[in-house]
Design a binder for these strands. Sequence first.
DNA 1: TTGCGTGCAAAGGTTTTGCATGGCA
DNA 2: TGCCATGCAAAACCTTTGCACGCAA
Lengths: 136, 136
Amino acid sequence: MNERSRYKTRQRETLLAYCRTVSGSHFTAGDVCAYFRSQGTAISQSTVYRQLESMVDEGIINKYIIDGNSPACFEYVGADAHEGEVCFHCKCEKCGKLIHLHCDELEEIQSHLLKEHQFKLDPLRTVFYGICDQCR
Amino acid sequence: MNERSRYKTRQRETLLAYCRTVSGSHFTAGDVCAYFRSQGTAISQSTVYRQLESMVDEGIINKYIIDGNSPACFEYVGADAHEGEVCFHCKCEKCGKLIHLHCDELEEIQSHLLKEHQFKLDPLRTVFYGICDQCR
DNA sequence: TTGCGTGCAAAGGTTTTGCATGGCA
DNA sequence: TGCCATGCAAAACCTTTGCACGCAA
């Protein structure tokens, strides 16, 4: 979200390139480290974590926690993800599939939460976890 | 849900008593340990974790994973809980406050997602992110 | 007696942090 | 030059596990 001024470092660019190559699927911090180690273009683990955190803040990637003891999953959504209409996400806990929904009924949740519970929902960060059609 | 035969130990009974005293709110494994330590009625940390896990299996308490790096939250629902009775969570992105809701309207989301989108929502993992009353 | 429950300590794995150095603007 | 970013190692953190002993049934 915050278009904070950032330095354009080799590590950041390389990480962004990686994100784009796996666009559409998810990856963990460990995946990233392992990949770079195998490539020779090493990036330290701390930098990976710090850059991933920054990108989550910026809204370039999403962070999912499927299970408390497994590593967090990240997914590239791109820099232009925050334009246009509201979109809800469902994430399957089994196959990891991410489903995008445009649904009036779900949008009512927002006004309900706001009116009845004084809570302003952020659909960009909210993810519905569950089990998808095929996995049941 | 499994009514497996269990031993009735001092630790289990004490833990159950604690759960009932905080009924309606959340607690972590650490909370439990700290409380017992302050009481003198010590229960080892492993036992706390093992008993909590058992109780989750039995359906006496629910386990919520709000955020991968914070400890898991538990909530007592009692032995006679209606099947599938859980609560929903709202997490404020600003102050980090966790609000938990028991709300019929939100429960309708579950059936809506199931019927219209073939998605079986998991309220134990799903967290609504947004901005709370006081932070707005 | 049987074998589950407990306690202790140590391991496990992911993520964060302190501090000196490097590099972008 | 002024900061932010990086790298390394160590720490922090929650949770699980191995093993011997205790205790409920």
